[in-house]
């Protein structure tokens, strides 16, 4: 599932799809933590999943606010069309 999220991040050019792929990747990492914690009978894996969940919530709120601002500025969500931000 992590690799599926990575593929989505690389392949798709819609910014919302890219954010969703990021969610899939975070979720896959959390799944690995919980499975490992369950395998060795430790609760630490679930703790780390809680932190991943918190970080995902903060990240997605800021990311979606950025997406809204970008849409108001450029009227598009195509990541290729937005690639003019060069140094």
């Amino acid at each position: 599932m992590f690799s599926l999220g990575l593929i989505g991040l690389l392949v798709r050019r819609d910014l919302i799809l890219v954010l969703m792929s990021l969610e899939v990747m975070l979720n896959a990492a959390g799944l690995a933590f919980v499975v490992a914690g369950s395998r060795w009978q430790q609760a630490d894996g679930q703790i780390v999943f809680l932190f991943v969940l918190t970080m995902a919530a903060a990240e997605v709120s800021v990311g979606l606010a950025l997406v809204l601002q970008l849409y108001h500025q450029f009227k598009t969500l195509d990541a290729d069309a937005l690639s003019e931000m060069r140094g």
């Binding site: 918190t54 919530a57 990240e59 709120s61 800021v62 606010a65 809204l68 601002q69």
Partner: peptide, 18 residues
Amino acid sequence: ASMLLLAGLVGAYHLGVR
């Protein structure tokens, strides 16, 4: 984590306001 959530809230508000 609570501080991160607060930062996310303030950041989202700052970016989202017109």
